[in-house]
């Protein structure tokens, strides 16, 4: 069942990724001031969206696990956190590549970028915690608590960092106000395609989890 759905998404990706590349590199015009480096924007924003969405899924699955104690929710929470961490890493790498030619520095303590960094730390902690607890039951409960608290924390982190940056006046202004309509279209296409990539990777990660559980059962029966 899982592998069939996963196959469908694989095929979907073969079609979708070239479309995304077309929209990002050919359909969308080259930005006048920033030039070709602005193309990274489509991947940067889409990754940020997927990363955040993935952690939201972890949050929902953590709540579901604590209520129902069904380990499938724990599996999804873990898988989604790992995929989310992958995409926030992409955000943190593409952000500086974009920032250097645009703002003259690799890293700016922009509220969004900084919040993403904190988010990254929270979920690195989440994954480390999972690795360091041997007992399946405790691992699921404790990481669910972290999955809930970590996600609720994000808006408060964002607010506090924004408040911090408005106190220090050297905050870099976002370049360019409105986006060209073609750029906006391309961005939404990329958002959609990255969402498909998210689901595809999530399904692959879930089938690994179910294999792991099956190995545990076989070992148990021995």
């Amino acid at each position: 069942m899982l592998s069939k759905v996963s196959r469908v998404f694989d095929i979907l990706l073969i079609i979708a990724v070239p479309i995304g590349l077309y929209f990002a590199f050919i359909y969308a015009p080259v930005e006048a001031k920033m030039g070709i480096v602005q193309k990274i924007f489509y991947f940067h924003v889409a990754s940020a969206w997927v990363g955040f969405f993935a952690f939201f899924i972890t949050f929902l699955m953590s709540i579901s696990f604590l209520i129902s104690r069904k380990f499938i929710f724990d599996d999804i929470a873990e898988a989604s956190a790992e995929v989310g961490l992958l995409f926030t890493t992409i955000v943190l790498v593409t952000g500086p590549i974009w920032a250097k030619p645009t703002w003259g520095a690799y890293w700016t303590w922009d509220p969004r970028l900084t919040t993403t960094l904190i988010l990254w730390f929270i979920y690195v902690g989440y994954i480390l915690l999972r690795q360091y607890i041997a007992d399946v039951n405790q691992r699921a409960k404790f990481s669910a608590a972290l999955g809930i608290i970590g996600f609720i924390d994000v808006p408060i982190v964002f607010l506090s960092i924004r408040l911090w940056r408005t106190i220090h006046p050297n905050v870099v202004q976002k370049g360019g106000g409105g986006l060209h309509p073609d750029m906006l279209t391309s961005m939404f296409v990329c958002l959609g395609i990255f969402s498909i990539i998210y689901v595809a990777i999530l399904l692959k990660r879930l089938s690994i989890s179910s294999l792991e559980r099956r190995i545990l059962i076989i070992e148990e029966k021995k």
């Binding site: 730390f121 924390d153 408060i156 506090s160 960092i161 911090w164």
Partner: peptide, 13 residues
């Protein structure tokens, strides 16, 4: 590792 990232708003404030 778990506590400090969550406490960022508190530490900043």
């Amino acid at each position: 590792l778990l506590l400090l990232p969550i406490l960022i708003p508190v530490i900043l404030a």
